[in-house]
C-alpha cells in the first residue's frame, strides 16, 4: 500500500511517516503543492494525507487537480483549520475524511486503514487477527468461529487496538477515539480502563489469546504473544 503525505511542517511529517511505515505501508512525503501535483500525476496511491495550508498554495487546489485527473485515491485532510465550511468544501471536492490537528498518530493510522478498507471493499469487509475475525459491516466479532456478545464501542476499541498492533496506545488517545466529538469536553479518561477490562474479559472467555498488554503509566498495547 502506498501513501502520499502532503505536509509542510517537517517535524510533523517525519513523525507521521515513521509511524505509518510498517510491513503494509510505504509512506512518501512532499512539502509543497507543486511537488504533490507532480507526484500525483505520475504515481497512483492508495491514500493521500493532505494538509490544507501549504507554502505554495491551498490544499483545495490539489483536490481539484485530483478530480480533474479522474483519480480515485482515498483522501484524508489533516488540517488545523476547523470550520464547518472548510469541512464541507473538502468533502465536496472529494475528500473522504477530515482530521483536525492535533491528533494522535494511532487515530490517523486507523482512519487510513478504514479508508483503504472501504476503497478496496469487495463484498466482504473483515479484519482478522489470528483467531479473531471482525465483520465491520454487520458489527459482529467471532473468536474461533464463535460469535461473541460485544458492544459497538468495544468493537471500535478492538479495531483501534488491532490496527495499532505492536504500538503503545496512550489512554488519552483511546479516550479521544472512543468519545469522538465529545472528546473536547471530556476531562476524565478513566472510563477507558473499564472498556479495556470488559473487552479483555470477553475475549478471554471466548478462548482468545491475551493480546492486550498494559504499559505502565502510559496505556495499552496489542501484541501477538
Amino acid at each position: 500500500m502506498k501513501l502520499l503525505l502532503i505536509e509542510d511542517e517537517k517535524e510533523l511529517a517525519l513523525s507521521i511517516q515513521k509511524y505509518l511505515t510498517d510491513k503494509y505501508f510505504v509512506c512518501e512525503w512532499v512539502d509543497t503543492a507543486k511537488a504533490a501535483i507532480d507526484k500525483i500525476s505520475i504515481y497512483d496511491y492508495d491514500c493521500i494525507l493532505l494538509d490544507l495550508m501549504l507554502p505554495d498554495g491551498n490544499g483545495f487546489e490539489i483536490l481539484k487537480e485530483l478530480k480533474d485527473q479522474n483519480k480515485t485515491e482515498g483522501i484524508i485532510i489533516i488540517s488545523a483549520k476547523e470550520t464547518l465550511e472548510t469541512r464541507i468544501e473538502g468533502f465536496n471536492l472529494g475528500a473522504d475524511d477530515y482530521l483536525t490537528k492535533p491528533f494522535h498518530l494511532s487515530e490517523l493510522l486507523v482512519r487510513v486503514q478504514a479508508l483503504i478498507r472501504r476503497k478496496n471493499f469487495k463484498g466482504s469487509n473483515i479484519v482478522s487477527f489470528n483467531e479473531i475475525h471482525i465483520d465491520i459491516l454487520s458489527k459482529a466479532v467471532k473468536v474461533n468461529n464463535n460469535k461473541i456478545d460485544i458492544t459497538k464501542k468495544e468493537i471500535d476499541l478492538l479495531l483501534h487496538l488491532i490496527g495499532n498492533e505492536n504500538r503503545v496506545l496512550s489512554k488519552s488517545a483511546i479516550a479521544e477515539h472512543l468519545s469522538g466529538d465529545m472528546a473536547d469536553m471530556l476531562d476524565n479518561h478513566d472510563f477507558v480502563y473499564a472498556h479495556i477490562k470488559n473487552l479483555k474479559k470477553k475475549l478471554n472467555e471466548a478462548g482468545s489469546g491475551d493480546y492486550i498488554k498494559s504499559v505502565y503509566g502510559l496505556g495499552y498495547k496489542w501484541k501477538n504473544e
Binding site: E9, S15, Y19, P102, H104, S106, A173, G219
Partner: peptide, 17 residues
C-alpha cells in the same frame, strides 16, 4: 498553537513507542 501542539502530540506518540 494547533501546529506546535500537533508536533508535540506526535512526538510523544513516537517516543512512547
Amino acid at each position: 498553537l494547533q501546529t506546535p501542539l500537533a508536533v508535540f502530540q506526535v512526538k510523544i506518540d513516537t517516543l512512547i513507542q
